[in-house]
């Protein structure tokens, strides 16, 4: 048996070219899902293979990579993906949002505003925003072609009729550049406004479903809503217990089995950066090493 040999950033060059061409098409047609021949990656489908393929196709030796899952650099899958690129591409990694040139994320957009030199790569499980209304690809493709998004509005309005609110709290559909309705990946709707007119390039990779899509910088991204029921962000009404932030998305930490709980920033870098500059919440965080970077 010959020992396997792997290329820079794992993917072979032919695969990278195929993904790169798909990325260019995705940027040229904001919000449109470009089919691509997703490869089998050495990690399971559903665990970020789409994001990993996009990152592998764009990453170069001068990049600095940050990987987050649920807003945190220290969740196991984020660690695993960061290590994968440190190993296969030898790139430097960071937990600092400001220092990263490429950020791969699952389920969150960092709190700190992104800048022009950055690319945000989203891991996407189900790229088709209409999939839960219509399971057939042949149908949803036709609906996108005709901009026929009535079904989505009907669904959202049925929520209002039943619950008094739009009952979608994450993966909240958006319209990109006034044309394509797009799934922002399962980020909480709190993050939706950050996608609008963002200075950074946003790329979305869905490996199992074989789709790549994009939002170029400075592109209009509107969350779907109704005049009498405008889109509203949701955030638990409390400051972060560690850094006191009152503008960040919070994780609910269950502290005992008698109803005790506290709320802390989901974006760990944002929280740590604030604490480092002297911000304090009601609880004091334990001192710990700031950087978990490898390579």
């Amino acid at each position: 048996m010959t020992a396997p040999v792997y290329n820079f950033a794992y993917l072979d060059e032919q695969t990278k070219r195929m993904i790169r061409r798909a990325i260019l098409k995705a940027i040229a047609i904001p919000g449109y899902q470009v089919p691509f021949a997703s490869r089998e990656m050495p990690m399971p489908y559903g665990w970020g293979t789409g994001g990993v393929q996009v990152t592998a196709a764009i990453l170069g030796p001068t990049d600095t990579l940050k990987v987050i899952d649920q807003g945190s650099d220290d969740t196991t899958n984020a660690i695993s993906i960061r290590k994968f690129f440190a190993k296969t591409a030898g790139v430097s990694t960071t937990t600092s949002t400001a220092d990263a040139t490429v950020i791969q994320t699952r389920h969150r957009i960092p709190e700190a505003a992104l800048s022009e030199g950055q690319v945000l790569v989203y891991q996407v499980p189900i790229p088709e925003p209409l999939r839960f209304l219509e399971p057939r690809e042949t149908e949803t493709r036709r609906m996108h072609a005709l901009s026929e998004y009535g079904l989505m509005h009907v669904k959202l309005y049925e929520d209002i009729a039943r619950f008094g609110h739009i009952a979608t709290s994450y993966a909240y559909p958006v319209k990109v550049n006034g044309r394509y309705v797009m799934d922002p990946s399962p980020t909480p709707k709190f993050d939706n406004p950050k996608m609008d007119n963002c200075a950074a390039l946003q790329l979305f990779g869905a490996g199992r479903e074989k789709r790549i899509y994009a939002i170029p910088p400075y592109t209009t991204v509107v969350s779907l809503d109704f005049e009498d029921h405008p889109f509203a962000r949701y955030r638990h009404e409390a400051p972060c217990a560690l850094c006191g932030a009152d503008d960040s998305y919070l994780d609910e930490i269950v502290t005992d089995d008698r109803g005790g709980r506290m709320f802390v920033c989901s974006d760990t870098d944002y929280c740590e950066t604030r604490q480092a500059s002297g911000h304090r919440g009601s609880e004091r965080a334990a001192p710990h090493k700031k950087d978990h970077a490898h390579g």
């Binding site: 820079f8 990278k16 070219r17 790169r20 940027i27 040229a28 196709a57 764009i58 170069g60 390039l201």
Partner: peptide, 13 residues
């Protein structure tokens, strides 16, 4: 190839 692509990607974006 990677650095050329990044220039083309940035230009397109």
């Amino acid at each position: 190839a990677q650095s050329s692509f990044r220039a083309i990607m940035d230009a397109t974006a």
